[in-house]
Amino acid sequence: MTRALIADDERLMREQLRARLAEVWPELEIVAEAKNGAEAVQLTEQLHPDLVFLDIRMPGMTGVDAARRIAQLPTYEPVPDGAGNDDAEGWPGCEIVFVTAYDEYAVEAFEQGVVDYVLKPAERERLALTVQRVRKRMAQRGGNGEPAPLPAHTPDMQQLLQKLAAQLNPGAPPKLKWIQATVGPQIQMIPVEDVLFFISDEKYTRVQTATLEALIRKPIKELIEELDMNLFWQIHRSTLVNTKAIAGVSRDLRGRQLVAVKGHPEKLEVSRSFTGLFKGM
């Protein structure tokens, strides 16, 4: 059974969407409702739903910010129990559907299928179309062969989230042009376009250019909000790579995708959630 989460700060809107979903997708199980973006992220991490309906405008953390945080949650494959059955606790991530009362957010990227949206109040016919699209994508991910990428893990989705965030917060600062980083005992200003990749650990993020390696105290989830995602792709929960620096993609003996970087010998692992970025490789 497909499991879903509804996030909206208006109780009547949550109830209305729940009722409409019961009509167009009777088998869908609504496992929880969230009143804001932070609660949506927390419940998604706890309950691992297959689908999350996010109101774009919510107090505190918006639906766009929540989508970014959800995209950073760890995903993992089901673990065989020894009897040929998969552990039900495996979670490949979730689909995201935006809910909005403002049709100005229904930008072209929505119609191109990057992610679906529903206008308030949810109409049966439009919601049925959304359900059809979502179920098709979920079936593709569950089929044989290369899994389809989760919408939140595609460059188009990251760019869409940046557009929506700019609409929600027109006074936000411009995208980063320079990285202030520690190189040995010195602080250096590194042009963003010179960065080949960023890799984070628990405390620091490594900034790698063709000529130097530096450290900053800024996690990947913050960099995603501050960098131009037309220039950088996320290929792992802890890794961003400059698209202009990608030399090619190969597979190792374990079948993992590895990104070769121009001007640097290191190869970057692509996590399972992001393998669809290089589909067919």
Rank of each mutant, 00 (worst) to 15 (best):
F198W: 07
V195Q: 04
P219A: 09
K221I: 04
D201G: 07
K221Q: 11
N242F: 05
V192Q: 03
I216A: 02
K244P: 03
K203L: 06
H236Q: 09
Y204R: 15
E193C: 05
S238I: 00
A247H: 10
Y204I: 07
V207R: 05
Q208D: 05
L215D: 05
E213Y: 01
F232N: 13
D252P: 06
D194N: 14
I235Y: 04
G248N: 13
A214S: 14
A245D: 12
L240R: 15
V241P: 11
I216Q: 02
D194S: 13
F198I: 03
R206I: 07
K218I: 02
I224T: 07
T211M: 00
E193R: 13
K203D: 06
R206C: 12
L253Q: 15
L253A: 15
I235P: 06
R256S: 13
E222R: 02
L240Q: 14
L215A: 08
G248Y: 06
A214W: 02
T239E: 08
S250I: 10
I216F: 01
L215V: 05
W233T: 08
F198P: 07
K221A: 11
I224P: 00
L215K: 15
E213G: 07
E226M: 10
E225P: 01
A210R: 15
L215W: 12
A210Y: 06
I235S: 08
V207Q: 06
K218F: 00
H236E: 03
R217F: 02
L196D: 02
I199Q: 14
F197I: 05
T211Q: 07
E226G: 06
A247I: 03
Q234C: 08
Q234E: 04
F198R: 09
N230P: 00
